[in-house]
Design a protein around this nucleic acid. Structure first.
Length: 871
DNA sequence: GATCTCACG
DNA sequence: ACGTACGTGAGATCC
């Protein structure tokens, strides 16, 4: 059996990875996508090949890089992107930590290193795999040297393999002849001149016939086409030079000790720490966690028997802080004693060395244990869990005074993550690794311990980041508010909804028929791909836009075609109805519970800005803009004896902008309750206030929206279907009229650049690594976000405060009315008819006084027997 | 699982 | 020159 060595072309693969993997950044703001992509490719190769030896080569002098991704790029080298440059030392650190040999030699091209190493290894009788993104290395392929070129396709890495025979098959020449082909055709990127007028086709033909340029030169008069014959004669010296340049050295002067390249366990402790810092979560699974010792586990204890359990709780009651975890035990616990919800175990940590897990059994079933916990909640100062809201059902005695949610705290500290869980909190904040393959009891102990131990750590970090009050006074109380809303749910008329869906269905079938007839064939209208072919190929419509994968058939494109092509209008109508039926009519029906109500989830740890999100189902995007869709709201009804009260903030984001910017004009306008869009129109278009046309007001409104989004002339021009120039002019006039706003928005960007995060009025932070990007698009995005996040985030803060106050007031007064929905700037209350006026007064008061700004907060309120009427 | 489209603020 | 408005969630298609 031949030994095998894998040689990785470091810069080439790093470069591939950089352009193939979307931008990733760790919480320190360090770009990591190239390193991540590199490691993925490397691990894939190692898993496949299991080589005895492994070496990564870097050419030291690589200040510039060829852009292989862009076909239009030719000629001189472009400087390496800053985001890539900063990752070069990182990958070297990672490799060092993994004990993988790195070979660099000043003045030597990576190709020559690879050539020499592969050649030497082959002579020693080894199999060699060269991993490179550079096709020049194909000349190195032999029977025993395999060239492997990784391709990143939609997140998946595929590898093209070339032995000598494969090169012959693919390119029609042998690897050695490949050099001569290149000598003739040249390579601008590598500064190889080649022979003028000879391209790939001609070069290949000539070499297929004559094998080498020398042989071709001997028969130079027979060469075809005549141009090649003439030029080879004329540029013979240049051709010879080109061949030298194109030839990869096999005998470079380097010292290489094979034993240094021996591939042993790369999963070292140092590498693990580095991977953690880089936040390569799904690569951490490769490490053997057992190796990294922690001494927490030895304090884990399983407790059974009523006497023992009582003893534990008695001890726990004396603690200031307890960490608690519920576990869905799939193991040994008799299902008989588990709860219907699936919980079969609770765990408790009340000192760093007192960590117990209690399986539900005949002595102590789930209700008994949660009863003990709820009782415990009355005596401790801090009752901490990971994801508190999920468990409040079982802890009726817990209040926002002493409840602590580690997950919510972790979210505030970094709101950009996709998901939050106990393992991550332990790793990031306690530097504690939790094995994924643990039994339920141990895992549950870890979670309880994490909830316990992270309290002081997270509190300190919140304090340091100026978010202590935000956490204690807004986010934690909100956990309880959201829980109440989820419990309350909203009543939905199932029968009505069904009828609505059926009506839509009937119309959809009609439309389908008409569309098929007009198209002349049947196809899947829901498939953008098929639809694109019908519209833009078969019916030859002018296609305005393209997406990555084909034609865009988005509504704004179709809107422009609709006046001229009746079928497009039908398709738009079909789309609208199909959406209403699938997402809303049918979609919502699936969520109606036994109580006739929908209990949507309100998520507190999703958005980057601090907004709440709603899922299963999303009740924050129920149609309202179009009448047909809006009708859906008629099926959302209050329960018997109740009415809906819907209250929404009027232009809260613009008011926040007025406050934060201190712009005199805008503040004055809001104090006088003037029509802001009309005023803007008057200023931007230089017309008297009373002479503003509807169109001007509409456009001004779009400008105001744009300001909040972090305006760009392009975005505004798209929205208003005007030229970019015009849009830029609107913006210019706007900033002339409101100089305070311009100053404020500029400050948002410069502050965020300086601090690395954007901040709301209440101290909520959004980290902003994008602002450091050298990529124009990403940086511009960062700038828009830096303008938008403080405004959108402050609005989110304010309505959260209002929600907490409204909910508290309803409870305090023992009212039967319940807050049931939040839609970003809107609250929906199911109000008992006898309490209607009181509820209206509470809503108005608490919403308008949630924050005291330089401008009044104004609330619009409506009542009705369904959501349609109340909006 | 990625992509496209579209519903909301 | 680059190629976009800010923030979400869900359904359908297609690989």
């Amino acid at each position: 059996m031949r030994d095998k060595i894998v040689l990785i072309d470091g810069h080439s693969i790093l470069n591939r990875a950089f352009y193939g993997v979307p931008d990733l950044t760790n919480s320190e703001g360090l770009h990591t996508n190239a390193v991540y992509g590199f490691l993925n490719i490397m691990f894939k190769i190692l898993d496949e090949e299991k080589p005895e030896y492994l070496t990564v080569t870097f050419d030291v002098h690589a200040p510039t890089f060829r852009h292989e991704m862009f076909a239009d790029y030719k000629g001189t080298r472009k400087p390496m992107a800053e985001e890539l440059r900063q990752q070069v030392p990182v990958i070297k650190d990672v490799l060092r930590a993994m004990h993988i040999e790195v070979i660099e030699k000043a003045g030597l091209e990576a190709d020559d290193l690879l050539g020499t190493l592969s050649h030497r290894c082959e002579e020693k009788g080894m199999d060699v795999s060269i991993i490179s993104g550079d096709r020049d290395t194909l000349q190195l392929a032999t029977e025993h040297i395999k060239i492997r070129i990784p391709k990143t396709k939609q997140g998946k890495t595929e590898v093209e393999d070339y032995y000598a025979a494969d090169v012959q098959e693919r390119y029609g020449v042998t690897p050695k002849e490949f050099i001569d082909v290149k000598a003739l055709m040249g390579d601008t990127a590598d500064n190889i001149p080649g022979v003028p007028g000879v391209g790939e086709k001609t070069a290949t033909k000539i070499i297929q016939q004559y094998q080498t340029i020398e042989n071709a030169y001997e028969h130079v008069d027979e060469l075809k086409p005549p141009r090649a014959s003439k030029n080879l004669k004329e540029f013979w010296e240049q051709a010879q030079l080109s061949k030298t340049l194109a030839t990869i050295k096999l005998d470079a002067d380097i010292t290489f000790e094979l034993e240094n390249a021996r591939h042993e366990n790369p999963y070292t402790k140092e590498a693990h720490e580095l991977f953690q810092r880089l936040e390569f979560k799904n690569l951490l699974g490769r490490f053997d966690v057992e190796a990294s010792v922690n001494d927490v586990e030895k304090y884990f204890r399983e407790v059974t028997g009523k006497e023992e359990i009582e003893k534990v709780f008695k001890e726990a009651e004396k603690a200031e802080t307890v960490g608690v975890a519920f576990s869905k035990d799939a193991g040994n616990v008799l299902p008989l004693f588990a709860h219907a919800s699936g919980y079969g175990r609770v765990s408790l940590c009340y000192e760093a060395e007192k960590i117990v897990t209690i399986p539900c059994d005949m002595d102590a079933d789930f209700e008994y244990l949660t009863g003990k916990l709820s009782h415990l909640a009355k005596s401790v100062k801090c009752f901490s869990m990971c994801g508190l809201k999920e468990y409040l059902e079982w802890l009726p005695e817990l209040t926002s005074e002493n409840g602590f949610d580690a997950i919510v705290a972790a979210y505030l500290l970094n709101p950009l993550k996709n998901d939050y869980n106990a393992e991550d909190v332990a790793r990031e904040h306690l530097n504690l690794l939790i094995d994924e393959k643990l039994d339920e009891g141990t895992k549950s102990c870890y979670e309880a311990y994490t909830a316990y131990a992270c309290v002081p750590v997270l509190e300190k970090k919140l304090e340091e980041n100026g978010m202590f009050r935000l956490f204690n006074e807004i986010e934690m109380p909100l956990v309880f508010t959201l829980y109440d809303m989820e419990q309350a749910g909203v009543k939905v008329e199932g029968e009505e909804l069904k009828r609505y869906g059926e009506e839509l269905g009937a119309r959809i079938i009609e439309l389908e028929k008409e569309i098929y007839e007009m198209a002349g064939e049947e196809f899947n209208i829901n498939s953008p791909k098929q639809l694109g072919v019908i519209l833009f190929e078969k019916l030859e419509m002018p296609h305005a836009k393209k997406t990555k994968t084909g034609y865009s058939t988005a509504a704004d494109v179709l809107d422009k075609l609709a006046p001229e092509y009746p079928i497009v209008a039908k398709i738009l109508e079909y789309r609208q109805l199909a959406k209403l039926k699938s997402t809303y009519a049918d979609g919502l029906a699936n969520y109606i519970g036994m109580d006739g109500r929908i209990h949507s989830k309100f998520n507190q740890t999703i958005t980057a800005t601090g907004r709440i999100s709603s899922t299963e189902p999303n009740l924050q995007n129920i149609p309202v803009r179009m009448e047909l869709g809006r009708l859906i709201r008629k099926v959302f009804v209050p329960k018997e004896g109740c009415v809906f009260v819907d209250a929404d903030y009027s232009q809260i984001e613009l008011r926040i902008l007025a406050h934060c910017s201190g712009d005199e004009q805008l503040i004055q306008a809001y104090r006088e309750a003037r029509d802001i869009h009309r005023m803007t129109a008057s200023q931007v278009f230089h017309v008297p206030f009373d002479e503003v046309t509807d169109l001007q007001r509409r456009n001004a409104k779009a400008v105001n929206f744009g300001i909040v989004y972090g305006i760009s002339s392009f975005g505004l021009s798209q929205d208003l279907s005007i030229s970019r120039k015009e849009a830029a002019q609107y913006i210019e006039h706007y900033f002339e009229s409101y100089p305070g706003i311009k100053t404020f928005l500029d400050k948002c960007v410069s502050d965020a650049k300086e601090k690395g995060y954007a901040e709301t009025l209440y101290g909520r932070r959004r980290p902003m690594p994008e602002l450091k990007s050298s990529n124009f698009m990403q940086r511009s995005f960062g700038e828009r976000v830096a303008m938008n996040a403080p405004i959108q985030g402050t609005a989110a803060d304010i309505i959260k405060i209002a929600m907490i106050h409204v909910n508290e007031e309803l409870k305090k007064r023992n009212l039967k009315s319940r807050m049931i929905l939040q839609v970003h700037d809107e609250l929906l209350i199911e109000a008992d008819e006898t309490e209607l006026e009181e509820v209206q007064q509470i809503l108005q008061d608490k919403m308008e006084h949630a924050a005291e700004l330089l401008v009044p907060l104004s609330v619009d309120m409506h009542t009705g027997k369904n959501w349609y009427e109340a909006k």
